[in-house]
Amino acid sequence: MTAIEPIDNRPAVDLREEVARATSFSAVLTWLWWRAAPWVVPAVLVVAWEALGRLGVFAPNLVPPPGAVVDAVVKLAADGELVEHVAVTLGRVAAGFVWGVAAATVLGVATGVSATARRLLDPTLQALKAVPSLAWVPLFILWFGIFEESKITLIAVGVFFPVYLNLMIAIRGADRKLVEVARINGLSLWATVRYVLVPGTLPAYVAGLRGGLALGWMFVVAAELMGASEGLGFLMIDGQMTGRPAMIIAALLLFAVTGKLTDQLLVTVAGRFLVWQDSLATSEQESSHA
């Protein structure tokens, strides 16, 4: 550990420069180790999993070896089913996300800007937030049926709260000092919104969007476990019903990968608007090693 500690706190960009300049073999080794470090634990786990499987420690019908999981993914891909299931789930998350974000943005702006709207709406919304979201399922199924509408509504509810709360709090916490700069320079309300309030709330809004997206992925699982004929959640249920644990684990991994990719997409798009920030780009670069 002591060998890498001096480099530990520096951003990755510095590391690359360092490598370009490095002439000594040990510097290259240190860099390689730093790059590889996040993969060490997963690699060890996979090897241990495979080894224990072969030694007969796990019952193969309950804990399939990694190879079987890869086979399951390959087979799904070959049938064209993989793309279909991923696309269906992705579509549900996207639809729920759009609806949830739209509602959260309208209400978050209203309660953030207007004390009356906040007094009127926020207590109710906070009360609704206290309802465990899965508790909505029976009602939504009753209202919207067992097909897409109830699933998308459930996902939208999950997406709504983090976006709403972040946006409202960010607008309420807008920097009074910067608003004074707008006042002293005679900015119109529209210009104040455009140049001061919107950019000022954007980082918190993006954080809300990421939180909302994460909940969207959580809720799509719930929605698809509840009853679906396609999608990654359906694959899991199907795997359970037909006793194919490799399928369940494959779906699990696909959830992880698609979830991470959509989050990365969000961060990349948002990052273009947040280049002025000191922190986001660097912290994302750090976490993207994981």
Partner: peptide
Amino acid sequence: GPTPEIGMVFQEPRLMPWLPVRENIRL
């Protein structure tokens, strides 16, 4: 209220962090 004839410099620069210097002045 504020008027263009009276300018103000605060204790802190109070620049908008999301605007380059030129655009801050443009405000």
